[in-house]
Write a protein that binds this DNA or RNA. Structure first.
Lengths: 72, 72
DNA sequence: TCATATTGCAATTTATATTTGACATTTAGC
DNA sequence: GCTAAATGTCAAATATAAATTGCAATATGA
């Protein structure tokens, strides 16, 4: 599909605001630490379920957390 | 991962509002018609890039288009 | 210094999103 | 009724998200 599109995010900022480690956030949304690390370094393209879980746990709207290159 | 979570969406409503067929919407976001059909019938969990593309093309915020069972 | 927590990174495996191609069903117009 | 466009759906293949394991690097505190 759309693999030229790059997603940016503010997961790390929101995570640190909440005082969570990568591991703690990973446990809260039930993924591995590596998955959180990859998302924070924008190495790939997570699914909407995971993004919604992160949005819930981090108390931010999806739109505040994720946007497309050139978007916003 | 989080496979118990069910994502709901308003893709079909937003698509019809814009007057697009599934095929036209699929072309705009560069996926197949089947992918749009599966998302509309909530059969699975799209990636954030695709959701953001849909959000752009349909002129809706992510939060208006996607939410978790029990959420909102 | 030593020990531990945290993060980065890479290879491999598993699960699943997405494609492809095909055919059935529905819908709307003639 | 017929026809064509739009949609639903299925099976098989491919692409990639996510898991798993392991190890290095860096920070932090005793």
């Amino acid at each position: 599909m759309n693999s030229e599109h790059i997603v940016h995010n503010r997961i790390k900022i929101a995570r640190v605001e909440k005082g969570y480690t990568q591991q703690e956030l990973a446990d809260l949304v039930e993924v591995t630490r590596q998955t959180i690390g990859l998302i924070e370094s924008e190495k790939y393209n997570p699914t909407i379920v995971l993004c919604l879980s992160l949005s819930q746990v981090l108390d931010k709207r999806l739109d505040e957390l994720f946007w497309l290159e050139g978007g916003k």
